[in-house]
Amino acid sequence: MKQPVNKTLWLSSAFALLLPASAMADINMFARTTGDTCFACHGPNGKGVPGGSIPPIAGKDAGYLAQTMKDFRSGKRPSTIMQRHAKGYTDAEIETIAQYLSQIK
């Protein structure tokens, strides 16, 4: 029998439990699954790797993360590869992913 599981349960499985309800509504499955692809370079949970050269992104201020991505995208902040990545995302996508990453403890 199919359980009447609320979609929110999806969000609960690791991080969203730490959030107030209002913030939780801002995180969507797009942000979570897309944000998780950042970990290939930025380490498990976006926390970097000891001795690694790619900085952590988890738990940073959402506004800072979003602005950094936007500045990479415009070229205002110089980068090696991040401009090439950032150009693949809209403002709204950057903001929602930043929100998700900022809430990783």
Binding site: K2, Q3, V5, K7, L9, W10, N28, M29, F30, R32, T33, T34, T37, C38, A40, C41, I81, H85, G88, Y89, E93
Partner: peptide, 14 residues
């Protein structure tokens, strides 16, 4: 398995 909605994430390759 849970009957959730499938997102359409963006994937990356470097």
């Amino acid at each position: 398995l849970n009957g959730w909605d499938m997102p359409r994430p963006k994937l990356a390759n470097t």
